[in-house]
Computed example of a mutant assay.
Amino acid sequence: MNPIALDVTDPATIDAAARRIDAEHGRLDVLVNNAGISGHVPGQPPSTTPAEQVRQVLETNVIGVLAVTNAMLPLLRRSPSARIVNVSSAVGSITRHSDPGHYLSKLPPAAAYPTSKSALNALTIQYAKELREQGILVNAATPGPCDTDFTKHLGGHLSRTAADGAAIIIKLATLGPDGPTGVFLDDDGTVPW
């Protein structure tokens, strides 16, 4: 299959992608929602973050997942073992941010990206609840900090490759029929919401 251009903030491209998958394959077995933007501005706390900046991040990282998932659901329902994997981040864990002993609680406060990933986690749970009886497993994964263009603002060289980060996503995308649904996982196991 040739690549399909899809902008998660553009309903026309979402609908076109769903129509093309339907025409060429008639179903969709796995949906990995991996589109994301950070909205990162170094040193910018929530109190000085423009609402439009947060809105743009939420539009891509949360609303985009909702739009794409809803467009693909008819195709996923035709699969004998459909899986949805939402690529989240450990920074979306409210538990870890509020634990004074966890390194995430020591990160500078930010309004956009962590908030969007917490919202994505909540959305993941809601889809898992809705689709469980249909046999569609819906989970969130955190690939960890990988050396990619997305993390270049962190400085230095990260030791995890994109392939390392993809391992947990592949695991969730290929779960058997008795696999979990509504979980948030990294390489080490369950991440607290």
Rank of each mutant, 00 (worst) to 15 (best):
T174K: 09
I169C: 06
L131W: 01
V183N: 03
S105M: 00
T148P: 09
Y113C: 13
Y113V: 15
G135F: 11
C146W: 00
G165Q: 10
P143L: 07
D188W: 01
K117F: 03
T115A: 04
Y127P: 04
A111D: 01
N121H: 09
Q134M: 14
L120V: 11
K171W: 14
P109D: 09
T124I: 01
T124L: 03
D188S: 12
F184P: 03
A110Q: 13
C146E: 00
A90F: 05
T151Q: 11
D99R: 12
L175G: 09
I168Q: 07
T124K: 01
L104A: 02
C146L: 04
G92H: 02
Q126W: 05
P109E: 08
F184A: 02
G176S: 07
L175S: 07
D164S: 12
R132S: 08
Q134I: 05
D187R: 15
A163C: 05
P109M: 11
R160Y: 14
R96E: 04
A128W: 01
G182F: 06
G144I: 03
G101C: 04
A122P: 00
T190F: 03
F150V: 03
T174P: 04
L123G: 01
L137R: 09
A166W: 07
V91W: 02
P114D: 05
H153I: 15
A110F: 00
K117Y: 09
H97C: 02
P100F: 06
N121P: 10
Q126F: 04
R132N: 08
A163Q: 12
H157G: 11
V138E: 09
P145A: 15
L172M: 11
A167D: 10
